[in-house]
Design a protein around this nucleic acid. Sequence first.
DNA 1: CTGTTAGCGCATTCAG
DNA 2: CTGAATGCGCTAACAG
Lengths: 348, 348
Amino acid sequence: MSEPNTMVFMTTAHKKVTIRDVARYAEVSYGTVSRYLNGNDHVSKDAAERIANAIETLQYVPNNAARSLAQQRTQTVCLILQVESAATIMQASVAEAMAAANQALGDAGYQMVTVIANSDEAVHRIAKLIKSDYADGYLLFSLSEDDSLALACKETKRPVVRSEASNRGDLPYPAVDFTNAEGQRDITRFLLNKGRSRLAYVCGPGFSTSAINRLNGFREAMGKFYDDSRVYYADDWEIGSGEMAAVTFQPILDQIDGIVCANDSIAIGVINQLDRFGYRVPDDIAVTGFDDSPLAQMANPKLTTVRQDSYLHGETVAKLLLNIMRGEPVERHFVQLLPTTIVERQSA
Amino acid sequence: MSEPNTMVFMTTAHKKVTIRDVARYAEVSYGTVSRYLNGNDHVSKDAAERIANAIETLQYVPNNAARSLAQQRTQTVCLILQVESAATIMQASVAEAMAAANQALGDAGYQMVTVIANSDEAVHRIAKLIKSDYADGYLLFSLSEDDSLALACKETKRPVVRSEASNRGDLPYPAVDFTNAEGQRDITRFLLNKGRSRLAYVCGPGFSTSAINRLNGFREAMGKFYDDSRVYYADDWEIGSGEMAAVTFQPILDQIDGIVCANDSIAIGVINQLDRFGYRVPDDIAVTGFDDSPLAQMANPKLTTVRQDSYLHGETVAKLLLNIMRGEPVERHFVQLLPTTIVERQSA
DNA sequence: CTGTTAGCGCATTCAG
DNA sequence: CTGAATGCGCTAACAG
């Protein structure tokens, strides 16, 4: 009744409301509405108000596909999670990095969407997605040996940033990584300084650059005392590998007073198995982890480990991508390194 | 040289290749190419081959936005993960369900994309996304007290399936859930049958339907012996809550021979704290969990718990959504219940 | 079986 | 400051 605009608008709910409906209701042309929506040009205050009102009462929301098509960009960033099994998805470090990236990208006006590549079929489907201009940029979290998605990324013109430095020169994406070598070197020295000199090492899976770098850090700290026969090479990052490592070391366990592990899960496996063998941690043998995952505090004894800030990791990856999307020049092989710190608890 | 088609095609790499380029190269009209791509109508074998060849040599991939716009569907399903903190993202059950859903949806030709709602701003952004016809269907994994996204889903015409039954009648989405009550009832009876009759209970957060259902199961098994003063109501599902529960129960710990917990994390917290108090598990007090998460096997003693098959959960949720998207009629309040089983280990 | 045409909903020129 | 026109890349309906 008191409404100045008494046009009858059945909220049909069947026919979707488009920008034209808004324009008609606001009594402007739909070009003006578009301008209003994108905040670019100037729209008269009067028109703006009517448009705002129309949008509100009509419950108008622009169609995503149409906007993407016309604009040639989607305002989304796609986070690709390439994993070998479900277990990997839930690594605390990954979850935290994802949360951080989601926040940073959201703040910049991008919607982060995550796709999971956990099968050959999924890899193939996602490779296609990448080529179809699905997103304005990509974050590649590959926790797998398979480089197929990294290769697929080469076929898009959109920027890509990796969550881990690669040792492959033919995959030239900027990356963010931790000072893996330095971290492992430092905690090894920490053990050495405590008088533990007969150390063994459990290395992560060979396809992982982090695993290699961490081993290198251990080697550097050990110097001429480095003994490859006291290194166990695991196939994955899981607890089971730690247990197997301890079993393998059993014959020489009496000659050892410390085991440096490639990550927390492995360290927990080692501790569990040492316990079964009757060795006390850290009294008989000290054990260290890497990551400072939530597991580290749940372990018994609590893990002394190398901490890496996963939240910072995700945030940094996201910001690097945003910079590139803004056009900032970044070297194709640029790797930003994040610091690690030692967290002393009970296991060493 | 031997190529029959000697047209010169600079792979300019600057100008993106469209369906028209393919048509020109294959010497057909682009309508035919479209038909070929969508496999619907009949295309002559001859033309099909030339098109296939053109697509291959031109490296053509259809543009996503354009296809979505013309077709009014995106061939994607959006999994919305509403969480309060990063820690929740990585719950093993969620990760496994996601992996399963990804597989099932992928097999059906849909790309699953996950968005994370971990802040008010993200919730708002995603609510808008939902209204913009971003996906053909939605999977709502809400591990939070906040119902705002469930409400936002009411404004889309696309089907929505929830991963957990809701107790709110105004959020009428089909859901898939576990037999929470039965599971907790059965493991309680399992304890009773073992001669443990003086039981306490640690309940999950009140906003969760699962938490309520599990408590009801416990209550049913206890019958007239149910004593609300022996129920601790936790604020979340974490280890810390288990520890606090044990502290709260301390005065009556000597009168208790078993504690049934709402989930595995809480059970571990209870066990840890009982250990600090000098009680032995299960000798003095038996403890049970719920979920059979990976933690259950890492705990010491290993957890006796109620197992729920998270992979099946994700798969079922996805298939239910697929059925609805195919037009199969499903009651708005339909809830599909998945079975739970008791896993006996050491803690009870 | 195939070419032609008209939109899908919106951004973005270009005149006014 | 605003309206009208053109096209983003593709599907689908229609003739042939």
